[in-house]
Amino acid sequence: MWATPSPPLPLRLRRPPGPPPRPGPFLTRHRRRLNRISASQDPLSTLSRLLWGRALPPAQLVLAVRHGWTAAWQVLMRQLAPSDPATGAFTRTPSRFPAVVGTPSSRLHLYVGLPCPWAHRTLVVRALLGLEARLPVSVAVPGDDGAWSFTPDSPDGLYGKRRLREVYAVRSGGFEGRASVPLLWDAERREVVCNESIEIIKYLCGLADADGGGGGGGGLDLWPSELRQDIDRWYGVIYPSVNNGVYRCGFAQSQEAYDAAASELFGALDRLEAHLASSRYLCGDRLTLADVCLFTTLIRFDLVYNTLFRCTRRKLAEYPSLHAYTRDIYQMPRVADTCDMEAIMAGYFKTLFPLNPGGIQPLRPASCDGESLLRPHGREALPSAAGTPLEAAAVS
């Protein structure tokens, strides 16, 4: 038989006597660079420095990322803020339950989100009319995906649900669409009463009347029959140009759409400034729902809309009458308690990812702190402009 050959001996290279050779200057610099890079905890930084060092990224990469981000931004914005495909102008989705139908039961529950100006309207009216005991409230918070959710610190006080969408789904017909706030809910019938803010606050005024003056509202009537026509006319100015106008600026998807929205917004603010220079409130010396609807946008103006929504021509603090008017309403009993500035800022800067991808929240403007908002407003001395036609105020 053939003998099995022995395995070959391992190859051994003999190192010449003396110390090992030192690497050349190029290899030394390369090793030092790799060591510094490997010490980084950020893999993206490590990769980018390996590819192009401390130089700017290549032009092709910049263009590719820019086009990719623009496409992703457009997809996100179409879901967050639908727009007119032809103009890029923001088009608000109509409320699914825009009016109170029939006669709700006496067991009502209000769902709100503190950042939302539309929900804030309902909280201000609830506070002014003293309806806190009559109308319990649950506060939803924006989740990481932007959906209204509940947390252990801010629970659903009625059903213990985790998301507002689940509350909507309790209704007998189920629910599809956007789960928005405010939501006025009939707890006895397990049904949506309304989720359109202007109709909810009108309904709350009627609820206060039925309760004999709002149970602590001091007989305040925010929706008096003799002023309803004026209130509706003012709302016809405030809603499209100011309340929705700031969103039309922030969510515009073309330069032309933004320019048109910003021009209309600041034109309306200029006219409101002129009117309020001689009238304490929009309808004279009586606070009405029109003032509440304007207030919840103004209190957010310098806080978020001026920067995040690019409403930059002027700050609210640069309008003497409008800023004093905002302070006047803020200082009314229980109104300040509805204004959570930290929640408002977080709800915009940390949630509206397409507008602020880094989630960085800026410092609160000095005009929006408690000391500034509690400064005397001096508007008690203004004459009443009740009965002044809107045409005379240049806001028709």
Rank of each mutant, 00 (worst) to 15 (best):
W2S: 15
W2Y: 12
P8E: 12
R15W: 09
G18T: 09
P19F: 04
P21H: 10
R22I: 11
F26H: 13
T28L: 10
N35D: 15
R36H: 07
A39C: 13
S40A: 14
L47Q: 14
S48E: 14
R49V: 06
L51G: 09
W52M: 09
R54M: 12
P58D: 12
V62W: 07
H67A: 15
H67E: 15
T70N: 15
A71I: 03
A71D: 14
W73T: 12
M77D: 09
A81P: 10
D84F: 09
A86E: 15
A86G: 08
T87I: 05
G88T: 06
T91S: 13
R92H: 11
R96V: 15
V101I: 13
P104L: 01
P104V: 07
S106H: 12
H109M: 05
Y111C: 07
Y111I: 09
L114Y: 05
P117M: 06
R121V: 00
T122L: 00
L135Q: 02
V139F: 02
A140M: 07
G146M: 04
S149T: 14
K161G: 09
R163V: 11
R165Y: 13
V167W: 03
A169S: 13
A169L: 08
S172R: 15
G173E: 08
E176Y: 08
E176L: 10
R178A: 10
S180N: 14
P182T: 08
L184E: 03
V192G: 03
N195V: 00
E196Y: 05
G206R: 12
L207C: 07
A210E: 12
G215I: 01
P224Y: 00
E226G: 05
R228C: 13
Q229I: 11
I231M: 02
D232I: 06
G236M: 06
V237I: 11
R248G: 10
C249R: 01
G250E: 01
F251A: 01
A252R: 08
E256F: 03
A261R: 11
A262N: 14
E264M: 13
E264N: 15
G267P: 04
H275F: 05
H275I: 10
A277D: 12
A277T: 10
C283R: 01
G284K: 02
R286G: 00
L287M: 10
L289R: 05
D291G: 02
D291C: 02
L294H: 07
L298R: 01
L308G: 02
F309G: 03
E318A: 02
A324Q: 05
Y325L: 06
Y330R: 04
R334V: 00
T338R: 00
D340E: 02
M341C: 09
E342M: 09
E342V: 14
I344V: 15
M345I: 04
A346Q: 14
G347Y: 04
G347W: 04
K350W: 04
K350Y: 05
K350H: 13
G358M: 12
G359R: 10
P362F: 12
P362V: 04
P362L: 06
C368L: 07
D369N: 14
G378M: 04
E380G: 15
P383E: 06
P389V: 01
E391Q: 11
E391G: 15
A392M: 09
S396Y: 09
